[in-house]
């Protein structure tokens, strides 16, 4: 939902970052207002997932220069856990399995960290169980998954549902969903997309990182950005995604030498 009067929640300017001394992001600029849904597309290795991880604070990624202002604050100055508590959510492309750690307990501790920041009452085990059960319907998740270890033995679809369940519990301001559609069959994709749509509000924003138009059939983006060589090369509306579906990314090889086309 585009509302030019809405406040800017996230403002990324000239962001450069590297991993293991390899520059990946080479000057990303992006402004996101409340209520907006942005899709970021691009080839493998274009820097999409790196942008997601840098925003969430992954320690392996080093910011070289640039700024990220979130709700008026310097996002890059915060530790990953503080970013989450402040309302940044990263939905992982490959959610991590944590053997021996109960999913329910993990969700409770995580949810309480955010609730504390929001000055909401932290929930004990019993209160949380009721709370989480109410949220399960958003992603049509079987309660049995709460009793298992975090993501251990979950199918690809179950892992992604668990991610969106966490999004529902954490009530983030900005959700960055990194290839949430990968590995999902069409039914699971619809369930996950419906969950994301249900959680999108006029005061929050969503960044969808995806390779495929099919996710954007389920979640309508306000803006579509194409990343290449570590920067946003082109921005358009959902028609751009359709165009990419037809023509692929070959045009980038010509465009990427011309920065003015962004």
């Amino acid at each position: 939902m585009i509302n030019t009067d809405a406040k800017i929640i996230l403002d990324i300017s000239d962001l450069h970052a590297e991993v293991e001394n390899q520059p990946i992001l080479r000057g990303v600029n992006l402004q996101i207002r409340a209520g907006e849904i942005h899709a970021i597309m691009g080839r493998n290795g274009s820097g999409k997932s790196t942008l997601a991880k840098v925003l969430a604070g992954h320690p392996a990624y080093k910011v070289i220069s640039g700024k990220v202002i979130y709700q008026g604050k310097d996002l890059l100055s915060f530790e990953p856990e503080e970013r989450s508590r402040l309302g940044i959510f990263l939905g992982f492309q490959y959610p991590i399995e944590i053997p021996g750690v109960s999913n329910l307990e993990f969700l409770r501790v995580s949810s309480n960290a955010r609730r504390k920041k929001l000055n909401k009452k932290e929930l004990d085990t019993f209160e949380f169980e009721d709370h989480v059960r109410n949220k399960l319907s958003i992603v049509q998740m079987d309660p049995a998954f709460l009793d298992r270890s975090v993501n251990e033995g979950f199918s690809g679809g179950e892992k992604k549902r668990n991610e969106i369940l966490q999004m529902a519990l954490l009530e983030p301001e900005v959700s960055i969903l990194d290839e949430t559609d990968s590995g999902l069959d069409i039914d699971a994709l619809r369930i996950v997309a419906a969950g994301v749509n249900q959680l999108s509000t006029p005061t929050t924003a969503t960044i969808l990182i995806t390779h495929y138009q099919r996710l954007l059939n389920e979640i309508t983006p306000d803006f579509v950005h194409v990343m290449a060589s570590g920067k946003i090369l082109r921005t358009g509306d959902k028609k751009l995604a359709l165009q990419l579906e037809k023509s692929g990314y070959d045009w980038i090889d010509n465009d990427s030498t011309n920065n003015d086309l962004t």
Binding site: A56, P59, E79, E81, I98
Partner: peptide, 14 residues
Amino acid sequence: EDELFYMQSRGIST
């Protein structure tokens, strides 16, 4: 490291 980051990204301290 991945497990630690996953938990941190959910608001849980190191």
